Simulated assay, not measured.
Amino acid sequence: MAAHYILLLTLLSMANSFAMAYDSSPLQDFCVASNNSQLIINGLLCKNPKLVEADDFSFSGLDIAGNTMNRLGSKVTLLNAEQIAGLNTLGVSMARVDLEIYGLNPPHTHPRASEIFTLLEGKVYVGFITSSPENKLFSKVLNKGDSFVFPKGLIHFELNIGKTKAVGIAALGSQNPGFNSVADAVFGSNPKIFDDVLAKAFQLDKKIVDWVQSQF
């Protein structure tokens, strides 16, 4: 009987050790193992707690509108652990999104974070697309005070369809959510993807692909 108890306790301890052992969530696109002496970690080094100050947890300036004078008419001002040191290891960040009239925050993904977007001013059309094979679009027109959730890693966008400038605040579930614009990644990669690949994938003439790539 004692042997059975010992076996049971051993199995429980093993199960507990497996439950407690897991990889931390990635905070960058990749972290290749290195044997050299330079320290590169998945995140940021921690400050000595005795040296921490209130300023490490604050930021000023998010009330200032971003510069939207660009081809998309949009500006995203990200506030992550690089700007607020106290966010390190807390798993959150935020961003201000400014949109000119008909300005677009183009289809993009955050590979490491879900997002909740709240519209403060204007009228904005938002949406996200589910994974293949469904590729289902969930979209809605937001008015002042409305919020919309974008699940982690899914393509989403915001388009100002109102008659005034729009501004929103996005809360993200990572201190470094990442940003991957679909158009920039596909047509603006460095080096360029062979036009044969993109022509076949998008069912376009290669001359059109070449022209689109030249815009990036």
Score class of each variant (00 low, 15 high):
Cys31Glu: 09
Gln203Thr: 13
Val52Met: 10
Leu172Met: 12
Leu204Ile: 05
Glu82Leu: 14
Asn176Phe: 11
Leu119Tyr: 04
Phe187Cys: 01
Ala183His: 07
Phe148Asp: 00
Gly86Ser: 04
Thr77Pro: 04
Gly103Gln: 00
Leu12Ile: 11
Met20Lys: 15
Val212Asn: 00
Ala3Asp: 13
Ser60Arg: 13
Gly173Trp: 06
Ala199Gly: 06
His108Pro: 07
Met1His: 15
Met69Cys: 15
Met94Cys: 12
Leu79Lys: 04
Pro133His: 02
Cys31Asn: 14
Leu39Lys: 14
Val186Trp: 05
Gln175His: 08
Asn135Gly: 08
Met69Arg: 15
Gly61Trp: 05
Ala183Phe: 11
Lys163Met: 09
Met20Ile: 15
Lys200Asp: 06
Val141Thr: 07
Asp98Ser: 01
Ser37Phe: 12
Asn160Tyr: 03
Ile129Pro: 06
Ala199Asp: 00
Asp210Tyr: 07
Lys207Gln: 09
Ala95Gln: 02
Ser74His: 05
Ala95Cys: 05
Ala2Arg: 14
Lys136Arg: 15
Val167Asp: 00
Leu11His: 03
Lys192His: 08
Gln175Thr: 08
Asn105Arg: 09
Thr130Trp: 05
Phe216Trp: 08
Gln203Phe: 09
Asn16Gly: 13
Pro151Phe: 06
Gly127Lys: 01
Leu7Arg: 13
Gln83Phe: 12
His4Asp: 12
Ile41Gln: 06
Ala201Ser: 13
Asp146Gln: 09
Tyr22Arg: 11
Gly173Leu: 05
Ala85Phe: 12
Val167Arg: 02
Tyr102Asn: 15
Asn36Lys: 09
Pro111Tyr: 00
Ile129Lys: 03
Tyr125Lys: 08
Leu11Trp: 04
Leu119Met: 05
Leu78Phe: 11
Lys152Leu: 15
Ser147Thr: 07
Cys31Gln: 13
Gln215Met: 08
Asn88Phe: 08
Val76Ser: 01
Ser93Glu: 05
Met94Arg: 04
Ile116Arg: 04
Asp29Ile: 13
Pro111Thr: 00
Ala171Asp: 06
Ser189Met: 02
Gly43His: 01
Ser13Val: 11
His4Gly: 11
Ser13Phe: 12
Pro177Trp: 00
Leu62Phe: 13
Leu142Cys: 02
Ala170Phe: 04
Val32Leu: 10
Asp63Leu: 09
Ser147Met: 06
Ser60Glu: 11
Gly43Lys: 00
Gly162Met: 02
Lys165Gln: 12
Ile169Phe: 08
Leu78Trp: 07
Lys50Leu: 12
Ile116Ala: 07
Leu104Phe: 03
Lys206Ser: 07
Lys50Phe: 09
Ala3Glu: 14
Gln38Thr: 15
Ala166Pro: 11
Asn35Gly: 09
Ala3Asn: 13
Val209Met: 01
Leu44Val: 11
Asp29Trp: 11
Ile169Arg: 02
Thr130Met: 05
Asp210Pro: 04
Leu44Arg: 10
Ala170His: 04
Glu121Ile: 12
Gln203Gly: 07
Asn190Arg: 12
Ser139Tyr: 03
Phe202Gln: 00
Gly153Asp: 07
Val197Lys: 03
Ser24Pro: 13
